[in-house]
Structures are given as structure tokens and as C-alpha cells.
Write a protein that binds this DNA or RNA. Sequence first.
DNA 1: CTGAAAGCGCTTACAG
DNA 2: CTGAAAGCGCTTACAG
Lengths: 346, 346
Amino acid sequence: MSDATVDRGRIPRITVKDLARQLGMSVSTVSRAFYDDAVIAPETREKVLRRAVEIGYQPNPLARGLITKSSRIVGLVVSDITNPFYPEVMVRLTEQFQAEDFNVMLVVASPTRNEEEAVRVLLSYHPDLVVMLATTLSSAASASCRKVGTPVVFFNRVGSDENSYAVTCDNVLGGRLIADHLIDRGHRRLGFVAGRPDASTNVDRWHGFQARCAERGVAPPASTGGVAFSYEAGFAGALDLLNREEKPTALFCANDILAIGAMDAARRGLGLSIPADLSVIGFDDIGMASWSSHALTTVRQPIARMIDRTTALALALARGNAVQPAVERLPGELIDRNTTRFIDGQ
Amino acid sequence: MSDATVDRGRIPRITVKDLARQLGMSVSTVSRAFYDDAVIAPETREKVLRRAVEIGYQPNPLARGLITKSSRIVGLVVSDITNPFYPEVMVRLTEQFQAEDFNVMLVVASPTRNEEEAVRVLLSYHPDLVVMLATTLSSAASASCRKVGTPVVFFNRVGSDENSYAVTCDNVLGGRLIADHLIDRGHRRLGFVAGRPDASTNVDRWHGFQARCAERGVAPPASTGGVAFSYEAGFAGALDLLNREEKPTALFCANDILAIGAMDAARRGLGLSIPADLSVIGFDDIGMASWSSHALTTVRQPIARMIDRTTALALALARGNAVQPAVERLPGELIDRNTTRFIDGQ
DNA sequence: CTGAAAGCGCTTACAG
DNA sequence: CTGAAAGCGCTTACAG
């Protein structure tokens, strides 16, 4: 019974040695049983595997990683999680990785522990891959990953450097879709409530929106905000825009949470009715957007496909397959609910 | 330059050996520099540490864990994440653990990978501790943790077995607070919209509510739901209760999301006005509850304190300190906003 | 105070 | 097909 140094009351774990001793085999043989492509007699493998489940042995992936240089850990770095869009993404990504026998190490970047620091400690665990699920552009973090050869893929955000992987919704296209939707309905005085200015989602949506307005000969939209993707920011942004000389008749908010805040400001703060007095449109199509109290017209991110693409890409990268750095932009879809309307005149 | 077996294009990591060679020291000495309580000359330590940051060396916690039997990993198992209450908890717990140099391995239990299976793979990483952040009662999972000697603490949920650790809001008390609030305002026909029946939060809130009603001589509340903690369930639950013979004048919903669904049902579905025609009260005080479109009266969970207690407990446990198994119930606070009112008559 | 050695739990050439 | 040996990147008694 090995040298069971009782570590702080912790029970000594079962190891290959235990299994080997019990079966009268060498540790090498036992070890091989856990690899499908190892040369080992089928009956031997079966014996090992059967006994393993009996005594509850599982190879220690940490020790294994020391040898194989593969930890089967994927690091997930997250920062702004206030958007309900992200928890779902986190969970679904994690599920997918788990299904492929990768485990997720969660790291949160915050004011106290910034992204660079967070990535530094993450890297000490030697993840096979890191995926970034955050809203700000940071090249430093991805640079330190690259320095140690760890591939990184950005989810719903494009890295600031050329050679990184990213999968996002086509935010520029989304912005254009929204411009068309509003302009087609007769709106000419448009407003934009921005989220964080350093988020690629924010800038791309704005660019698309703006560009399409210009193409269709509509006056440049008024814009405000740029503090956060939050209810409060949406509330404040709408108030700002709607108190200006030239009141917009329609607001594009950089995401759904902003839009919900904006609607509350319009309704409760200003006594407006939506969509009668004001059209509002969001982006993301979070669950809440479909609630009858909001019934928000928005652009739905193709979240299932985005997650599929991310895991596929991630897994390929983690396996060491060479794949061209690229950003994949998947088109979103405009979901027309009840917060925009046709206006006459103009 | 060591035996750089180019592993799938991955860059060979810097190790103690590299550092030792560069400094002309032994690996033992270098290793000691990273432990505050190790005997080592101060200047030596400083030299090592300085050089380490220069070349970007960090001890590999995985290799370290092999020796120390401490992975500095805390496993976080999560299942029903649809409640916006949880993402915040996840992030804040993770931040706290990070601050103490623990890292979080996220594991999600789902229909495809149930809790037991999830815990099994988690345990293979030998976490120093696991915290359960889920809504269903499962003793199997905690049993397998105990079998390998890994402490588990339940957050906002009490384990089904006696000797485990848990920190929760005092849900029974919360239910009582709500009963008092409603009864004090003259309500006598009360309704309860349940969440998942297997969640301890749900049963405790219901018990407290019921018991207090009985104590104050109010007729037993009608109850419905019991499918999920979701908007849809709240919507359906309210519809059910409000279509009964004896319509309740006030609804206690087992959490805020249910309450928001219930309010939408009452308002949009039934044309009722809140609180004029119906009082509604929730539980949690998620961010959304304070939005002006909801302004929901609710019981606020003492989330900051709950998290502090959890990390304190967790850290003590992870350090191997003996602490009595116990469930800690922290009192919540009733936040009186705009969804309940006094009724006359009776 | 420092170093050589053993060992943590694994895997993987290398012989047989 | 199997086993003995070396080694992954660390830490920690044990000498000196």
C-alpha cells in the first residue's frame, strides 16, 4: 500500500501502480490500455479497463500532460459578462469542449486582475488553447499566448492583430440590415446608442449602420453613449438623443440590453409609446428580447453556428492542425417583432 | 538548448532547469525561491525572481501539484444557468479564487453529461475543492467527491446529505418575510408560483411562506408551477392561478425571473394592472428587478456576503483546515419596490 | 544556505 | 505483445 503520506487528511489517489500491482502487469501495459492506438492485446486491455472502473481509477491528466505536452485544458477568458448573451455562450462552449474531452479553465479579467494578468496565470496551466470571450480589444493578451505557442480564438470579437482566429457574427452586415429596415419603413432621422467604444462588435455595427445610411442618402445618424453595454447606458443614451433638437424617430442600440434600457427611458422617462412614437431596434436576440414586455425587433446572432464553428476551429487548433488564421463572419438575421413601425410623411 | 522535441509546432516551455542553468544554480535552489517560507538567501531569491520575470518563467502548477498534492484548482460545477443570478455568482466566485491563486475549472452538467459524469471528469484533475452551483439535489456527486477526499461546498443549495458544507440565503426566512409583507398589506388570497420542485431554494421558500401563512391564520396559498425557474414557467403559472375560481390577489414567485414572467402574463395576457389589480413579489433581486419596467418587490439575496463566506470556507477547506460541516444560512432583505400594494376590505 | 537525489503519476522509445 | 528504463517539470527530505 504505497507510501501513503496522509496529505492534510486527503485520501491517497489510486494510481497506475496500484492497478498494475493488482493485475500483475507492468505500468507500461496498464498505461497502454487507455490509448486506442497503442499496441496491446485486446484481452489485456479489457482486463485493465474493467478493473479500472471497478476500483475507480482514472489516469491523472495532469501527470499525463507532463509527458504528452497536452493538458486537454482550454482556457476561457471572459470579462464583461453583464450581457446575458455570454453566460449562454460560456455554458454551451463548455459543454461542447467537455464532449470532446477537453476541460475548461475559466479565467475572468476584471479591474483588479486585468486581461494580461489573467492570461498570464492561465498560461501557467499550459492550456492547449485559449478562447477569448470578451468585449475589449487587447493584443497584449493574444501576444503572450502566441509567444508560448498557444493558439487563441476570439469569440464574437476580432483581435486587433492580423494573424489570429476569430468567429463572430457579421456585425457590419447586421448594422446594414438595420439601416435598411428602418429606412424602408420611412425613417430618416436615425439615432445610434453605442456600447463600449473599444468593442469590435460596437464599432462594426456602427460602421455598417452608418455606411448603409450614407449609401441610401440618409443623413448621418446621431450617436451617443459609448460607455457600456448596459441597461443604464441605454437608458441614459436614449434620454440624451431624445432631448436633442432634432429628435430621431428611430434608435438603433448596439445590443439588446441597451435597447431595453432605451425603451424604458422612452416609455417611463419620456412617456413615449413604442413603436408609435419611437422605433427601437437592438442586436443579439437574447432570450429576453422575445418576452412580451419587450418584444424587441433585433438582429439575431447565429449563436449555434458560431459555437459550432468555434469548437471546430478550436479543436483543430488544439490538435495541432495547421489552419489559416482568419476571421469567420457569420450572417445574422433580422427578427422583426413589435418595436419598429412604418412612419408616413417625410 | 534542451531536447526541444517540437511538439506539434508548440514552443518548448521554459522550465526550472533553464532558469537554473542560466543562473548557475541548482534546480532546488531555484525552486525554493518561489516559496516564501523556504530557507534561501534573500539575495539568491531576488536574483531568481528577477530573472524569472525577465525570461517569463512561471513554475508549472501541474508539475508542482504532482508533488504537493495540491492542484490549486477549484472545480465549479454548474447546471441551470438560465437564472441571471448565477453568471454573476460564477464570475465573482472566480475572481475571488483567482485572487487567492486558485484557478477555476468549469464543468457544466447537462442532459447529455449529467452531474455525476461531470464530477467524475472534474475529479480526474484532482481539484483541491469543488463548489456546486446548481439547483437540483444530488447526493451521488457529492458522494464521489467525498470518496476521494475532496471537500465540496454547495452554493445557494443544500446538499441532500448531512455532512456537507453549504452556504445559502435563508430561504425559509425569506418566504416568511414575504408572507408577512403580503399579509400586512391586507392580502388573504395568496398564490405561489413554484420553480423546480427538486431545488432546495424552491422548497425552502415555499415552506417558509406556507408556514408563516398558517401561523397568521391565512388560508393556505394556492400553488402552481414546479417546472422550471423560467420566464415561460412564470407566465404559465400566473395564467393558471389567475384563471382559477378563487383568484389570488397576490403572487409570490419562487424567483425574480418567474415573477417577471408572471407579471407579463398578468399584464399582457390578462390585461391586469400591477400592483393595482395584482401584487407580485419575487426572490433574488437580480439586476433586472430594479429596472423601471419591472420595479419588482423582492427579497434580495445577500450575495456579496454569501460569496465571501463561500470563499472563506472553501479556502479553509482547500488548505486542509478542519471545519465542521454545516449549512450557513444568511438572511435576505425584502426590497420594497412597486409591485405590491395595500388592499382594503377583507 | 545550497545541491544531489528521489520521487510525484504518468508515457514512450527501446529491447526482448 | 510486454516490461524495464528514462524522463516530463517540479518539490523536498537529507547531507553538507
